[in-house]
Design a binder for these strands. Structure first.
Length: 688
RNA sequence: AGAGGGGUGGGCUAGCCUGGUUUAUGCUGCAGGGCUCAUAACCCUGAGAUCGUUGGUUCAAAUCCAACCCCCUCUACCA
């Protein structure tokens, strides 16, 4: 079986966020990696959607060409996907010659087949910007509620929210320059969807594996009647429409980006594989299954419009020239952020560039899949993130580490033979033997979340097995038996390396590294999931833990700091100004020399010390975080510098009447401030 | 308004299509115990849910039907 695996095309104007990632890109990556591991023939493509009004407008604002802007942004997204270890065979973009030519030829074919017609319409045109305005780029006063910022398609007032036609607006204005647009006649080319209704209905009904919710949405849509849809736009930034008389028009992005699924494979075959026949090999073969990973908002486009275009193209074509219809779509619900919508402007959400700064990639990949919105909208919750990663660490990571450590300690890192198996061994070994097909079947049913949970659950089984066998006792009496148990455990670790690869590839690599299996030469693959892959006599490497526990409070803080830093960057000089204090302000601080006369650690804390200090004129109690830096005896008798007029504060039940001053660097090194010992001064001397 | 999805122990979640072997699954958290090899980890036991509300169908409903309440999403020349 051959597979064309694809993910929805991200719009080039924005960095994708975690929700975009799990819905399409990451899910498809897991699927593609799994198929490759299984030994299937697969090509995995996607790309940036470069065209459309927002990119053109953004470019205009920055005073560069749309071409320059989108190329730059495309490169940023492409690099990020590489960092996310998305294993595209070709991540391209829609403004490349192969795609453009392909789209133009494709539409001429459809026209030849009688699915394109021309129609005159009236729409708003801005004379100042020389621009036909899409609905969203027209603002005006809502005729229903009087709200002034209503857009051409909908009134934005939360109280109203009514759907509008641009012509309904009172005093319409161009959203780019603010001038009043005029109505202008223009011709557009339409796709004759009603003509395709029957065939599309048949396609959806015959395809038994598309998800029930997607199917009902499509059939419903067909029942309501598919509208004729304009496929051209009066925009400069796009693919020139190839129709006669359509000079200066471009193809509407929705109607060309989806064709990228086909053209990206063409480009891959020609440019990367240097073998043109690979294109037909995938796209013109009945044995090819094409799968599409998308968010739920994209269902209609992938299950009606894209197949509709293919059907229109295939008409009157001989069998070998026809393109295959989609095999399945996997659509996810939406990912929310702490029960809120992702929103860049409100700072709600996490974007894939900042995620990489906060935690290892695999933690994000793991958490996103573990939490994949398969049934209903799901929230990214920080608390769940911590929870899930700790499960990964404790259940999977710790088992691996224990196994490695035992073998390293008891047997000098050498795997010893498996002996006679008893019942407990047999049960665990048989689970191990089945796990490959259990997890694989789930992935093939697009149940990625369940598949991953299945891996975790067999790791729990492994922990039970290890507890029952207790090699740390066994080693005292029966070394051979201990080796036997550890042999079984190491087989499981090897299996984990294979099972986890599609989900968290970096960690899989780490497992094989410590296992001392050279993945460069030949990566162990899905069919090798068994109970015998590691032979007796094999030597493993000195182990180190593969995962760490996660403290999300730190991450949240770090995220906030990086965002603040980014936001404040242009105003650095202002910050410096702010930090200047006047002498009068400094004088308000009462800083004095004092002597520590007694010190004792505070119970149930790691670092806090209770200090009794002498200021010469009075004695006070201070609390300071010093226990891990200085030892208690060392502190006694030291002369220190204290801020005495800081409001007192209770810490762990002890009242601290002041603050001891110390130097702290970025690495957490701490040094008490003291004064020049050669010049002795009285206790209580003021520092000025 | 129309269309689509959802409301299950403190938090998250499975089951719903194809009604009954489920005393409603699992994780986390909580309580108790065990182990002490490992990253305070691992293992065992326990408490905790009128499955949004109200009706209906049925011998039997979280699961099917109806009405209602609440939450989310989409509504096409926006990407």
């Amino acid at each position: 079986m051959k597979w064309v695996c694809t993910s929805a095309w991200p719009y080039v104007n924005a960095i994708p966020h975690l929700g975009n990632m799990i819905g399409s890109v990451l899910s498809s990556d897991i699927f593609a990696r799994y198929l490759r591991s299984k030994g299937e023939d697969v090509v995995f493509v996607s790309g940036s959607d470069m065209h459309g009004t927002p990119a053109a407008v953004a470019a205009k604002k920055q005073n560069i060409t749309p071409d320059e802007l989108t190329k730059k942004n495309h490169q940023i997204i492409k690099d990020l996907f590489e960092k996310w270890q998305i294993s595209y065979d070709n991540y391209t973009q829609t403004h490349n010659p192969i795609h453009i030519k392909f789209v133009q030829e494709f539409y001429l074919e459809i026209q030849k087949n009688g699915f394109i017609f021309e129609k005159e319409i009236e729409s708003f045109y801005c004379q100042h910007d020389s621009f036909f305005l899409p609905d969203r780029f027209i603002v005006g006063t809502c005729p229903y509620c009087g709200f002034e910022g209503a857009r051409g398609d909908q009134c934005d007032s939360p109280a109203c929210g009514k759907l509008l036609e641009p012509t309904e607006l009172i005093r319409p204005r161009c959203n780019i320059c603010g001038n009043e647009p005029i109505l202008k006649k223009t011709n557009h080319w339409y796709l004759d969807f009603p003509k395709l209704e029957n065939e599309l209905e048949k396609f959806v009904k015959d395809n038994e594996i598309i998800p029930a919710n997607a199917r009902s949405a499509c059939l419903n849509s067909i029942k309501e009647g598919l509208p004729e849809r304009a496929i051209t736009r009066d925009l400069e930034w796009g693919i020139p429409a190839p129709f006669k008389g359509a000079e200066n028009k471009t193809i509407y992005v929705w109607f060309e980006a989806v064709l990228g699924y086909i053209s990206a494979v063409k480009e891959w075959a020609e440019k990367i594989e240097k073998d043109k026949s690979k294109f037909e090999y995938f796209w013109n073969d009945k044995n090819t299954r094409s799968v599409y990973f998308i968010g739920k908002d994209n269902i209609i486009f992938h299950l009606l419009i894209f197949p509709g275009l293919i059907l229109a193209y295939n008409k009157n074509k001989p069998e070998p020239e026809r393109f295959e219809l989609p095999y399945n779509v996997s659509s996810t619900e939406f990912l929310m952020y702490e029960n809120d919508k992702f929103s860049k402007s409100r700072g709600k959400g996490i974007w894939i560039d900042e995620a990489l700064e906060l935690a290892p990639l695999d933690y994000w990949r793991f958490n996103l899949i573990f939490n994949r919105p398969e049934k209903s909208d799901t929230s990214f919750l920080w608390s769940e993130f911590q929870n899930n990663i700790n499960v990964l660490n404790d259940v999977v990571g710790n088992f691996i580490h224990r196994t490695f450590t035992f073998i390293d300690r008891y047997f000098g890192g050498i795997v010893t033979p498996m002996g006679e198996t008893d019942d407990a061994d047999a049960i665990f070994l048989s689970s191990m033997k089945n796990i490959g097909s259990v997890v694989g079947d789930l992935i093939e049913q697009f149940e990625l979340k369940k598949a991953l949970k299945e891996v975790i659950s067999i790791a729990r089984e492994a922990n039970v097995y290890l507890t029952e066998k207790a090699p740390w006792h066994l080693i005292k009496g029966d070394k051979e038996k201990t080796g036997h148990v550890l042999n079984i455990c190491i087989q499981f670790v090897h299996n984990l390396g294979i099972l986890l690869e599609p989900f968290i590839p970096d960690s899989s690599k780490a497992i094989f590294h410590y296992l001392n299996v050279n993945t460069e030469k030949e990566r162990p693959k899905w069919p090798q999931i068994s109970g015998t892959a590691i032979k007796a006599g094999h030597k493993i490497k000195k182990p180190k833990p593969i995962f760490q526990k996660l403290d999300v409070e730190d991450l949240k803080l770090k995220l906030k700091e990086t965002r603040d830093a980014k936001a404040e960057k242009p105003e650095v000089s202002e910050i410096k100004k702010k930090q200047i204090v006047s002498y009068d302000e400094f004088k308000k601080l009462d800083i004095r020399v004092a002597k520590i006369i007694d010190a004792e650690p505070i119970a149930k804390t790691d670092n806090l010390v209770k200090l009794k200090i002498d200021l010469g004129f009075e004695q006070r109690t201070l609390v300071a975080g010093l226990a891990q830096i200085y030892n208690i005896e060392e502190l006694k008798g030291k002369k220190i510098v204290v801020l005495t007029n800081l409001g007192s504060r209770k810490m762990k039940g002890v009242l601290s009447q002041g603050m001891l001053l110390a130097a702290v660097d970025d690495d957490g090194n701490v040094s008490l401030l003291t004064y020049d010992k050669d010049k002795e001064v009285k206790l209580g001397s003021k520092i000025e």
